[in-house]
Design a protein around this nucleic acid. Structure first.
Length: 533
DNA sequence: GTTAGGG
DNA sequence: CCCTAAC
Protein backbone atom coordinates (compact mmCIF):
# COMPACT_ATOMS: atom_id res chain seq x y z
CA UNK A 1 0.00 0.00 0.00
CA UNK A 2 2.77 2.30 0.71
CA UNK A 3 4.07 1.66 -2.66
CA UNK A 4 1.26 3.73 -3.83
CA UNK A 5 2.85 6.66 -2.34
CA UNK A 6 6.18 5.95 -3.67
CA UNK A 7 7.56 8.65 -5.65
CA UNK A 8 7.83 6.96 -8.93
CA UNK A 9 4.45 5.50 -8.66
CA UNK A 10 2.71 8.52 -7.74
CA UNK A 11 1.52 10.57 -10.59
CA UNK A 12 2.02 14.14 -10.29
CA UNK A 13 -0.47 15.84 -8.29
CA UNK A 14 -1.85 19.18 -8.67
CA UNK A 15 -0.30 21.64 -6.54
CA UNK A 16 -2.56 22.49 -3.89
CA UNK A 17 -2.92 25.37 -1.74
CA UNK A 18 -5.18 25.78 1.00
CA UNK A 19 -6.31 29.16 1.60
CA UNK A 20 -8.08 30.45 4.48
CA UNK A 21 -11.08 32.54 4.28
CA UNK A 22 -9.46 35.76 4.97
CA UNK A 23 -7.40 35.52 1.95
CA UNK A 24 -10.28 36.17 -0.17
CA UNK A 25 -12.03 38.63 1.91
CA UNK A 26 -10.73 41.56 0.06
CA UNK A 27 -9.07 42.46 -3.09
CA UNK A 28 -5.76 43.27 -1.67
CA UNK A 29 -5.39 40.02 -0.01
CA UNK A 30 -6.64 38.24 -2.98
CA UNK A 31 -4.10 39.87 -5.07
CA UNK A 32 -1.37 38.95 -2.81
CA UNK A 33 -2.92 35.66 -2.61
CA UNK A 34 -2.64 35.36 -6.28
CA UNK A 35 0.87 36.38 -6.14
CA UNK A 36 1.56 33.96 -3.47
CA UNK A 37 -0.05 31.40 -5.52
CA UNK A 38 2.02 32.24 -8.44
CA UNK A 39 5.11 32.29 -6.41
CA UNK A 40 4.41 29.05 -4.97
CA UNK A 41 3.68 27.56 -8.25
CA UNK A 42 6.67 29.02 -9.84
CA UNK A 43 9.03 27.76 -7.32
CA UNK A 44 7.91 24.33 -6.94
CA UNK A 45 8.16 21.46 -9.18
CA UNK A 46 4.97 20.69 -10.89
CA UNK A 47 5.29 17.23 -9.69
CA UNK A 48 5.61 18.26 -6.20
CA UNK A 49 2.32 19.15 -4.82
CA UNK A 50 2.56 21.83 -2.37
CA UNK A 51 -0.24 22.05 -0.06
CA UNK A 52 -0.27 25.11 1.82
CA UNK A 53 -2.13 25.73 4.90
CA UNK A 54 -2.43 29.36 4.57
CA UNK A 55 -1.36 32.20 2.50
CA UNK A 56 1.18 33.21 4.97
CA UNK A 57 2.62 29.85 5.01
CA UNK A 58 2.45 29.67 1.33
CA UNK A 59 4.60 32.61 0.89
CA UNK A 60 6.86 31.53 3.55
CA UNK A 61 7.51 28.24 2.06
CA UNK A 62 7.33 28.97 -1.54
CA UNK A 63 10.72 30.43 -2.03
CA UNK A 64 12.71 27.96 -0.15
CA UNK A 65 10.44 25.08 0.01
CA UNK A 66 12.23 22.00 -0.78
CA UNK A 67 10.85 18.96 -2.27
CA UNK A 68 10.88 17.10 0.91
CA UNK A 69 8.79 19.55 2.66
CA UNK A 70 6.44 19.65 -0.15
CA UNK A 71 6.06 16.02 -0.32
CA UNK A 72 5.63 15.73 3.29
CA UNK A 73 2.92 18.19 3.44
CA UNK A 74 1.41 16.63 0.50
CA UNK A 75 1.23 13.38 2.13
CA UNK A 76 -0.08 14.92 5.16
CA UNK A 77 -2.78 16.32 3.17
CA UNK A 78 -3.53 14.00 0.38
CA UNK A 79 -2.26 10.91 1.86
CA UNK A 80 -4.01 11.32 5.06
CA UNK A 81 -6.51 8.86 3.99
CA UNK A 82 -3.84 6.33 3.88
CA UNK A 83 -3.25 6.56 7.44
CA UNK A 84 -6.53 6.29 9.01
CA UNK A 85 -5.01 6.43 12.37
CA UNK A 86 -3.32 9.69 11.79
CA UNK A 87 -6.27 11.06 10.06
CA UNK A 88 -8.30 11.70 13.08
CA UNK A 89 -5.59 13.65 14.71
CA UNK A 90 -4.93 15.66 11.67
CA UNK A 91 -8.52 16.32 11.36
CA UNK A 92 -8.78 17.67 14.78
CA UNK A 93 -5.81 19.80 14.31
CA UNK A 94 -7.16 21.18 11.16
CA UNK A 95 -10.40 21.91 12.65
CA UNK A 96 -8.66 24.04 15.07
CA UNK A 97 -6.38 25.72 12.70
CA UNK A 98 -8.66 26.19 9.84
CA UNK A 99 -12.28 26.29 10.14
CA UNK A 100 -12.63 27.27 6.60
CA UNK A 101 -10.32 26.57 3.85
CA UNK A 102 -10.15 25.33 0.47
CA UNK A 103 -7.87 23.86 -1.97
CA UNK A 104 -6.49 25.80 -4.71
CA UNK A 105 -4.72 23.76 -7.18
CA UNK A 106 -2.16 25.84 -8.78
CA UNK A 107 -0.92 26.06 -12.23
CA UNK A 108 2.63 25.19 -12.70
CA UNK A 109 3.68 28.41 -14.17
CA UNK A 110 1.17 31.03 -13.71
CA UNK A 111 1.86 34.57 -14.38
CA UNK A 112 2.12 36.61 -11.34
CA UNK A 113 -0.40 38.68 -9.69
CA UNK A 114 -3.36 40.09 -11.29
CA UNK A 115 -2.14 39.35 -14.67
CA UNK A 116 -2.74 35.89 -13.76
CA UNK A 117 -6.29 35.90 -14.69
CA UNK A 118 -6.03 37.82 -17.83
CA UNK A 119 -3.13 35.92 -19.07
CA UNK A 120 -4.87 32.74 -18.61
CA UNK A 121 -7.92 33.99 -20.15
CA UNK A 122 -6.03 35.08 -23.14
CA UNK A 123 -4.41 31.79 -23.44
CA UNK A 124 -7.66 30.18 -23.23
CA UNK A 125 -9.10 32.36 -25.82
CA UNK A 126 -6.28 31.72 -28.13
CA UNK A 127 -6.53 28.10 -27.75
CA UNK A 128 -10.15 28.19 -28.17
CA UNK A 129 -9.88 30.01 -31.39
CA UNK A 130 -7.53 27.40 -32.50
CA UNK A 131 -9.82 24.71 -31.55
CA UNK A 132 -12.70 26.11 -33.29
CA UNK A 133 -10.87 27.37 -36.24
CA UNK A 134 -9.47 24.11 -37.28
CA UNK A 135 -11.10 21.36 -35.49
CA UNK A 136 -9.46 18.89 -37.71
CA UNK A 137 -6.13 19.88 -36.46
CA UNK A 138 -6.96 18.79 -33.05
CA UNK A 139 -4.34 16.50 -31.95
CA UNK A 140 -3.50 14.77 -28.86
CA UNK A 141 -1.76 17.69 -27.53
CA UNK A 142 -4.78 19.70 -27.51
CA UNK A 143 -6.69 17.09 -25.84
CA UNK A 144 -4.29 17.22 -23.13
CA UNK A 145 -5.15 20.70 -22.67
CA UNK A 146 -6.28 20.00 -19.28
CA UNK A 147 -9.09 20.46 -17.10
CA UNK A 148 -9.84 22.13 -14.02
CA UNK A 149 -12.39 22.72 -11.58
CA UNK A 150 -13.41 25.38 -9.35
CA UNK A 151 -13.83 25.06 -5.78
CA UNK A 152 -16.62 27.19 -4.83
CA UNK A 153 -19.83 26.65 -3.18
CA UNK A 154 -22.60 25.59 -5.31
CA UNK A 155 -26.09 24.42 -4.96
CA UNK A 156 -26.55 20.91 -4.12
CA UNK A 157 -27.81 18.73 -6.74
CA UNK A 158 -30.78 16.71 -6.08
CA UNK A 159 -30.23 14.35 -8.83
CA UNK A 160 -27.20 12.63 -10.12
CA UNK A 161 -28.19 13.73 -13.47
CA UNK A 162 -27.88 17.15 -14.64
CA UNK A 163 -30.77 19.11 -15.66
CA UNK A 164 -31.48 20.09 -19.13
CA UNK A 165 -28.93 22.44 -20.53
CA UNK A 166 -31.33 25.24 -20.41
CA UNK A 167 -31.19 25.09 -16.74
CA UNK A 168 -27.76 24.04 -15.98
CA UNK A 169 -24.76 24.59 -18.03
CA UNK A 170 -22.47 22.34 -16.28
CA UNK A 171 -23.00 19.22 -14.64
CA UNK A 172 -20.77 18.19 -12.00
CA UNK A 173 -20.13 14.73 -11.09
CA UNK A 174 -18.99 13.49 -7.89
CA UNK A 175 -15.60 12.21 -8.21
CA UNK A 176 -15.00 8.96 -6.52
CA UNK A 177 -11.38 9.65 -6.54
CA UNK A 178 -11.86 12.75 -4.72
CA UNK A 179 -14.27 11.17 -2.48
CA UNK A 180 -11.68 8.67 -1.73
CA UNK A 181 -9.02 11.13 -1.21
CA UNK A 182 -10.87 13.50 0.82
CA UNK A 183 -13.44 11.40 2.31
CA UNK A 184 -11.64 8.50 3.65
CA UNK A 185 -11.41 9.64 7.11
CA UNK A 186 -8.85 12.11 6.25
CA UNK A 187 -8.93 15.52 7.54
CA UNK A 188 -10.50 16.59 4.39
CA UNK A 189 -13.50 14.58 4.43
CA UNK A 190 -15.32 15.10 1.25
CA UNK A 191 -18.51 15.21 3.02
CA UNK A 192 -17.35 18.25 4.71
CA UNK A 193 -16.89 20.28 1.69
CA UNK A 194 -19.63 22.35 0.53
CA UNK A 195 -17.81 22.38 -2.61
CA UNK A 196 -15.11 20.22 -3.76
CA UNK A 197 -11.71 21.00 -4.82
CA UNK A 198 -10.77 20.29 -8.31
CA UNK A 199 -10.78 16.86 -9.63
CA UNK A 200 -8.95 14.98 -12.17
CA UNK A 201 -10.87 13.81 -15.12
CA UNK A 202 -12.62 10.61 -14.96
CA UNK A 203 -11.87 8.58 -17.91
CA UNK A 204 -13.82 5.76 -16.72
CA UNK A 205 -16.80 6.79 -14.82
CA UNK A 206 -17.30 4.95 -11.67
CA UNK A 207 -20.11 2.66 -11.02
CA UNK A 208 -23.15 4.55 -10.04
CA UNK A 209 -22.92 3.88 -6.43
CA UNK A 210 -19.58 5.41 -6.43
CA UNK A 211 -21.02 8.66 -7.24
CA UNK A 212 -20.62 9.26 -3.72
CA UNK A 213 -22.91 11.53 -2.03
CA UNK A 214 -21.59 14.14 0.18
CA UNK A 215 -19.39 15.74 -2.28
CA UNK A 216 -20.16 17.63 -5.28
CA UNK A 217 -17.18 17.99 -7.35
CA UNK A 218 -16.49 19.08 -10.76
CA UNK A 219 -15.49 16.69 -13.28
CA UNK A 220 -14.64 18.62 -16.27
CA UNK A 221 -12.10 16.77 -18.16
CA UNK A 222 -10.46 18.37 -21.07
CA UNK A 223 -12.09 21.49 -20.43
CA UNK A 224 -11.96 24.67 -18.86
CA UNK A 225 -13.24 25.44 -15.69
CA UNK A 226 -16.17 27.25 -14.81
CA UNK A 227 -16.44 29.66 -12.17
CA UNK A 228 -19.71 29.89 -10.66
CA UNK A 229 -22.11 31.11 -13.09
CA UNK A 230 -19.51 31.95 -15.54
CA UNK A 231 -18.09 29.31 -17.63
CA UNK A 232 -16.04 28.67 -20.56
CA UNK A 233 -16.91 26.20 -23.17
CA UNK A 234 -14.99 23.12 -23.58
CA UNK A 235 -13.20 22.31 -26.69
CA UNK A 236 -14.69 19.22 -27.88
CA UNK A 237 -15.09 17.41 -31.05
CA UNK A 238 -18.64 16.78 -30.40
CA UNK A 239 -20.16 20.00 -31.26
CA UNK A 240 -23.36 18.80 -30.04
CA UNK A 241 -22.03 18.32 -26.67
CA UNK A 242 -20.44 21.64 -26.63
CA UNK A 243 -23.49 23.38 -27.64
CA UNK A 244 -25.13 21.92 -24.71
CA UNK A 245 -22.38 22.97 -22.53
CA UNK A 246 -21.75 19.52 -21.79
CA UNK A 247 -18.48 18.03 -22.20
CA UNK A 248 -18.04 14.69 -23.57
CA UNK A 249 -14.62 13.45 -23.34
CA UNK A 250 -15.39 9.96 -24.16
CA UNK A 251 -13.70 10.41 -27.43
CA UNK A 252 -10.53 11.14 -25.71
CA UNK A 253 -10.55 8.32 -23.39
CA UNK A 254 -7.68 6.61 -24.89
CA UNK A 255 -5.37 9.41 -24.29
CA UNK A 256 -3.37 9.27 -21.33
CA UNK A 257 -2.08 11.68 -18.96
CA UNK A 258 1.17 11.59 -17.48
CA UNK A 259 0.75 14.22 -15.11
CA UNK A 260 -2.37 15.53 -14.04
CA UNK A 261 -2.66 18.64 -12.35
CA UNK A 262 -5.21 21.01 -12.18
CA UNK A 263 -5.48 24.25 -10.97
CA UNK A 264 -8.29 26.11 -10.28
CA UNK A 265 -9.29 28.72 -8.23
CA UNK A 266 -11.11 31.59 -8.31
CA UNK A 267 -13.25 33.27 -6.14
CA UNK A 268 -15.33 36.17 -6.33
CA UNK A 269 -17.49 34.74 -8.86
CA UNK A 270 -19.40 32.99 -6.32
CA UNK A 271 -22.74 34.33 -6.88
CA UNK A 272 -25.08 34.95 -4.17
CA UNK A 273 -27.29 32.28 -5.38
CA UNK A 274 -24.66 29.74 -5.37
CA UNK A 275 -23.87 30.00 -1.83
CA UNK A 276 -26.31 28.03 0.02
CA UNK A 277 -26.68 24.47 -0.54
CA UNK A 278 -30.06 23.44 -1.46
CA UNK A 279 -30.24 19.86 -0.88
CA UNK A 280 -30.00 18.14 2.34
CA UNK A 281 -26.60 17.41 3.45
CA UNK A 282 -24.89 14.90 1.43
CA UNK A 283 -27.82 13.94 -0.59
CA UNK A 284 -25.96 15.06 -3.48
CA UNK A 285 -24.18 13.04 -5.87
CA UNK A 286 -23.39 15.65 -8.24
CA UNK A 287 -23.92 19.25 -8.15
CA UNK A 288 -24.55 21.40 -10.93
CA UNK A 289 -24.31 24.90 -11.55
CA UNK A 290 -26.97 26.86 -12.97
CA UNK A 291 -25.26 28.85 -15.50
CA UNK A 292 -27.54 31.11 -17.20
CA UNK A 293 -24.48 32.67 -18.56
CA UNK A 294 -23.87 29.65 -20.52
CA UNK A 295 -26.55 30.30 -22.93
CA UNK A 296 -25.69 33.87 -23.16
CA UNK A 297 -22.18 33.34 -24.16
CA UNK A 298 -21.78 29.76 -24.88
CA UNK A 299 -18.44 30.16 -26.36
CA UNK A 300 -17.41 33.28 -24.77
CA UNK A 301 -15.07 33.50 -22.01
CA UNK A 302 -15.96 34.94 -18.82
CA UNK A 303 -15.45 38.52 -19.26
CA UNK A 304 -15.30 40.28 -16.08
CA UNK A 305 -12.01 40.30 -14.44
CA UNK A 306 -13.10 42.46 -11.72
CA UNK A 307 -12.42 39.68 -9.45
CA UNK A 308 -9.41 37.61 -9.77
CA UNK A 309 -11.01 34.41 -10.58
CA UNK A 310 -8.98 32.03 -12.33
CA UNK A 311 -9.01 28.49 -12.85
CA UNK A 312 -6.56 26.71 -14.80
CA UNK A 313 -4.52 23.86 -15.01
CA UNK A 314 -2.00 22.45 -17.14
CA UNK A 315 -1.34 19.04 -18.23
CA UNK A 316 1.79 17.81 -19.65
CA UNK A 317 2.10 14.94 -21.82
CA UNK A 318 4.40 12.16 -21.26
CA UNK A 319 5.86 12.22 -24.66
CA UNK A 320 6.38 15.63 -23.51
CA UNK A 321 5.34 17.87 -26.06
CA UNK A 322 5.43 19.67 -22.94
CA UNK A 323 2.49 21.47 -23.83
CA UNK A 324 1.18 22.35 -20.57
CA UNK A 325 -1.78 24.28 -21.33
CA UNK A 326 -3.52 26.49 -19.15
CA UNK A 327 -7.09 26.86 -19.04
CA UNK A 328 -8.77 29.46 -17.32
CA UNK A 329 -12.16 30.33 -16.71
CA UNK A 330 -12.38 33.39 -14.91
CA UNK A 331 -15.15 35.62 -14.58
CA UNK A 332 -17.32 36.86 -12.00
CA UNK A 333 -20.93 36.67 -12.15
CA UNK A 334 -22.39 39.35 -14.09
CA UNK A 335 -24.27 41.65 -12.00
CA UNK A 336 -22.41 40.64 -9.04
CA UNK A 337 -21.64 44.00 -7.81
CA UNK A 338 -19.67 43.11 -4.83
CA UNK A 339 -16.21 44.28 -5.46
CA UNK A 340 -14.71 41.86 -3.16
CA UNK A 341 -14.74 38.27 -3.86
CA UNK A 342 -17.05 36.36 -1.86
CA UNK A 343 -15.82 34.27 0.82
CA UNK A 344 -15.79 30.70 0.29
CA UNK A 345 -16.51 28.78 3.26
CA UNK A 346 -15.70 25.27 2.97
CA UNK A 347 -16.36 24.17 6.33
CA UNK A 348 -14.89 21.25 7.84
CA UNK A 349 -17.46 19.43 9.66
CA UNK A 350 -16.53 16.93 12.12
CA UNK A 351 -19.29 14.59 11.41
CA UNK A 352 -18.56 12.13 8.84
CA UNK A 353 -21.98 11.56 7.63
CA UNK A 354 -21.21 9.18 4.93
CA UNK A 355 -18.09 7.46 5.23
CA UNK A 356 -17.17 4.42 3.53
CA UNK A 357 -14.37 6.00 1.81
CA UNK A 358 -12.78 2.71 2.16
CA UNK A 359 -14.94 0.86 -0.22
CA UNK A 360 -15.08 3.79 -2.39
CA UNK A 361 -11.43 4.16 -2.63
CA UNK A 362 -11.05 0.59 -3.44
CA UNK A 363 -13.61 1.17 -6.00
CA UNK A 364 -11.32 3.59 -7.53
CA UNK A 365 -8.85 0.89 -7.87
CA UNK A 366 -11.48 -1.34 -9.15
CA UNK A 367 -12.11 1.27 -11.63
CA UNK A 368 -8.84 0.41 -13.09
CA UNK A 369 -9.89 -3.11 -13.39
CA UNK A 370 -13.13 -2.24 -14.87
CA UNK A 371 -11.92 -0.14 -17.65
CA UNK A 372 -9.67 -1.63 -20.13
CA UNK A 373 -8.33 1.25 -21.98
CA UNK A 374 -8.07 3.78 -19.28
CA UNK A 375 -6.93 1.18 -16.92
CA UNK A 376 -3.56 2.59 -16.71
CA UNK A 377 -4.86 5.94 -16.11
CA UNK A 378 -7.42 4.94 -13.74
CA UNK A 379 -4.96 2.97 -11.85
CA UNK A 380 -2.65 5.77 -11.73
CA UNK A 381 -5.04 8.29 -10.78
CA UNK A 382 -6.60 6.15 -8.28
CA UNK A 383 -3.25 5.85 -6.80
CA UNK A 384 -2.90 9.45 -6.46
CA UNK A 385 -6.28 10.57 -5.87
CA UNK A 386 -7.70 7.66 -4.21
CA UNK A 387 -4.74 8.14 -2.08
CA UNK A 388 -3.78 4.64 -1.85
CA UNK A 389 -6.37 3.51 0.47
CA UNK A 390 -5.35 0.03 0.96
CA UNK A 391 -7.68 -1.21 -1.58
CA UNK A 392 -7.00 -4.81 -1.67
CA UNK A 393 -10.42 -6.09 -2.11
CA UNK A 394 -10.69 -4.54 -5.43
CA UNK A 395 -12.10 -6.76 -8.02
CA UNK A 396 -15.59 -5.93 -7.36
CA UNK A 397 -16.68 -2.77 -5.93
CA UNK A 398 -17.35 -3.11 -2.40
CA UNK A 399 -20.97 -2.83 -1.84
CA UNK A 400 -22.03 0.41 -0.54
CA UNK A 401 -23.15 0.45 2.92
CA UNK A 402 -26.77 0.43 3.58
CA UNK A 403 -26.67 3.81 5.02
CA UNK A 404 -25.52 4.95 1.70
CA UNK A 405 -28.18 3.11 0.03
CA UNK A 406 -30.82 5.17 1.52
CA UNK A 407 -29.19 8.20 0.25
CA UNK A 408 -28.49 6.44 -2.89
CA UNK A 409 -32.08 6.55 -3.55
CA UNK A 410 -31.34 9.95 -4.74
CA UNK A 411 -29.05 8.65 -7.27
CA UNK A 412 -31.26 5.80 -7.86
CA UNK A 413 -28.29 4.19 -9.23
CA UNK A 414 -26.79 2.69 -6.29
CA UNK A 415 -29.87 0.85 -5.59
CA UNK A 416 -29.87 -0.28 -9.08
CA UNK A 417 -26.45 -1.46 -9.27
CA UNK A 418 -26.44 -3.38 -6.21
CA UNK A 419 -29.50 -4.01 -4.35
CA UNK A 420 -28.16 -6.98 -2.70
CA UNK A 421 -27.04 -5.24 0.36
CA UNK A 422 -23.76 -6.59 1.44
CA UNK A 423 -24.44 -9.77 -0.32
CA UNK A 424 -22.88 -11.13 -3.37
CA UNK A 425 -22.55 -8.93 -6.34
CA UNK A 426 -25.76 -10.30 -7.49
CA UNK A 427 -26.78 -8.40 -10.45
CA UNK A 428 -30.35 -8.83 -11.13
CA UNK A 429 -29.99 -11.13 -14.02
CA UNK A 430 -28.90 -13.93 -11.80
CA UNK A 431 -31.16 -16.84 -11.69
CA UNK A 432 -28.81 -18.88 -13.72
CA UNK A 433 -31.32 -20.06 -16.16
CA UNK A 434 -34.27 -17.86 -15.68
CA UNK A 435 -34.87 -15.03 -17.95
CA UNK A 436 -34.16 -11.56 -16.96
CA UNK A 437 -36.44 -10.44 -14.38
CA UNK A 438 -38.39 -7.46 -15.31
CA UNK A 439 -36.59 -4.54 -14.04
CA UNK A 440 -38.24 -1.32 -14.79
CA UNK A 441 -36.31 1.67 -15.78
CA UNK A 442 -35.65 4.00 -13.01
CA UNK A 443 -36.14 7.62 -13.50
CA UNK A 444 -32.46 8.14 -13.36
CA UNK A 445 -31.80 5.68 -16.04
CA UNK A 446 -34.44 7.22 -18.12
CA UNK A 447 -33.01 10.61 -17.61
CA UNK A 448 -29.64 9.34 -18.52
CA UNK A 449 -31.01 7.89 -21.66
CA UNK A 450 -32.73 11.07 -22.60
CA UNK A 451 -29.65 13.01 -21.95
CA UNK A 452 -27.70 10.59 -23.99
CA UNK A 453 -30.03 11.07 -26.85
CA UNK A 454 -29.78 14.72 -26.40
CA UNK A 455 -26.08 14.53 -26.79
CA UNK A 456 -25.72 12.03 -29.50
CA UNK A 457 -29.09 11.66 -30.93
CA UNK A 458 -31.07 8.50 -31.20
CA UNK A 459 -29.69 5.43 -32.80
CA UNK A 460 -26.47 5.88 -31.06
CA UNK A 461 -27.28 3.52 -28.32
CA UNK A 462 -23.96 1.92 -28.08
CA UNK A 463 -22.28 5.24 -27.93
CA UNK A 464 -24.67 6.61 -25.46
CA UNK A 465 -23.84 3.79 -23.24
CA UNK A 466 -20.32 4.99 -23.26
CA UNK A 467 -21.00 8.56 -22.51
CA UNK A 468 -19.09 9.51 -19.51
CA UNK A 469 -20.75 12.77 -19.14
CA UNK A 470 -22.48 13.01 -15.90
CA UNK A 471 -22.18 9.40 -15.36
CA UNK A 472 -24.51 8.41 -18.06
CA UNK A 473 -22.64 5.30 -18.78
CA UNK A 474 -22.67 4.43 -15.18
CA UNK A 475 -26.33 4.78 -15.03
CA UNK A 476 -26.78 2.71 -18.05
CA UNK A 477 -24.30 0.01 -17.47
CA UNK A 478 -27.01 -2.42 -16.81
CA UNK A 479 -28.86 -1.67 -19.92
CA UNK A 480 -27.93 -2.95 -23.25
CA UNK A 481 -27.99 -0.90 -26.34
CA UNK A 482 -31.07 -2.70 -27.32
CA UNK A 483 -32.56 -1.84 -24.02
CA UNK A 484 -31.87 1.76 -24.68
CA UNK A 485 -33.41 1.52 -28.02
CA UNK A 486 -36.48 -0.15 -26.67
CA UNK A 487 -36.81 2.27 -23.91
CA UNK A 488 -36.47 5.16 -26.23
CA UNK A 489 -39.10 3.71 -28.40
CA UNK A 490 -41.40 3.49 -25.50
CA UNK A 491 -40.57 6.94 -24.39
CA UNK A 492 -41.32 8.36 -27.73
CA UNK A 493 -44.55 6.54 -27.83
CA UNK A 494 -45.58 8.04 -24.61
CA UNK A 495 -44.28 11.42 -25.47
CA UNK A 496 -46.31 11.38 -28.57
CA UNK A 497 -49.45 11.16 -26.63
CA UNK A 498 -51.48 14.23 -26.25
CA UNK A 499 -51.48 16.12 -23.06
CA UNK A 500 -54.96 15.09 -22.26
CA UNK A 501 -54.10 11.50 -22.57
CA UNK A 502 -51.02 12.09 -20.63
CA UNK A 503 -52.92 13.60 -17.88
CA UNK A 504 -55.40 10.84 -17.56
CA UNK A 505 -52.52 8.56 -17.67
CA UNK A 506 -50.73 10.40 -15.00
CA UNK A 507 -52.79 8.72 -12.39
CA UNK A 508 -51.42 5.42 -13.18
CA UNK A 509 -48.60 4.28 -11.15
CA UNK A 510 -46.68 3.31 -14.18
CA UNK A 511 -46.30 6.78 -15.37
CA UNK A 512 -43.73 8.02 -13.06
CA UNK A 513 -42.02 9.69 -15.89
CA UNK A 514 -42.09 13.37 -15.27
CA UNK A 515 -44.00 15.27 -17.79
CA UNK A 516 -41.02 17.46 -18.17
CA UNK A 517 -38.94 14.60 -19.25
CA UNK A 518 -41.52 13.54 -21.69
CA UNK A 519 -41.50 16.95 -23.13
CA UNK A 520 -37.82 16.88 -23.66
CA UNK A 521 -38.25 13.53 -25.25
CA UNK A 522 -40.70 15.08 -27.53
CA UNK A 523 -38.33 17.81 -28.38
CA UNK A 524 -35.61 15.40 -29.14
CA UNK A 525 -37.95 13.43 -31.26
CA UNK A 526 -38.74 16.40 -33.34
CA UNK A 527 -35.21 17.44 -33.44
CA UNK A 528 -34.22 14.08 -34.77
CA UNK A 529 -37.05 14.25 -37.18
CA UNK A 530 -35.85 17.52 -38.54
CA UNK A 531 -32.35 16.32 -38.82
CA UNK A 532 -33.52 13.40 -40.74
CA UNK A 533 -34.74 15.67 -43.43
C1' DG B 1 -20.79 -5.77 -32.86
C1' DT B 2 -24.97 -2.66 -33.73
C1' DT B 3 -29.37 -1.27 -34.90
C1' DA B 4 -34.30 -1.61 -36.40
C1' DG B 5 -38.52 -3.78 -35.72
C1' DG B 6 -41.80 -7.17 -34.81
C1' DG B 7 -43.28 -10.28 -31.23
C1' DC C 1 -37.64 -8.12 -22.85
C1' DC C 2 -36.67 -11.37 -26.57
C1' DC C 3 -35.49 -12.55 -31.25
C1' DT C 4 -33.81 -11.75 -35.61
C1' DA C 5 -32.95 -9.73 -39.89
C1' DA C 6 -29.94 -6.60 -41.84
C1' DC C 7 -26.12 -4.00 -41.66
Amino acid sequence: MNSLLEHHHAPQLPELMMIDDECSSDHASVDSWMVGLALCAGNSSPSAPVPIASRARAQRMSPGSDLVDSLESTQTMLGASLRQDAAAAAHQQLLVEQSAMRFVPVADKPAAGRQFATTLTQQLQQQQQQLWAEPSSLDDDLYHSGFGAVAASQPRATSPLFRPPQEAGWQFQASPQLASTYDSGSSFSAATWDVPPATLPLHAPPPPHQLHAGISSLDIPYGYVAEFGAQAPLPCLLRRAVSDNVLDHSVHQQHHYDTGLLASVAEGGVGEDSVGSQGSEGDTVGGYQHAQHASQQPLGLPVSHSAPNVSLLGLERSNSTVRSQLHAAAGSRGGHSAASPRKLSLKLKSQRSRQPAGPRASASAALAHASHRPARLAARRSVVLAAATSSDDDEEYAPASESDMSEAEVSGVAGEVRRSGGGSPALRHESSTGKKKHNPWSLNETEALVEGVRLLGPSKWAEIKKLTVSGICSLLTNRSAVDLKDKWRNLTRVARLSKAVLKSRSHKSTSDIPLELLLTVKELMELAKVEAE
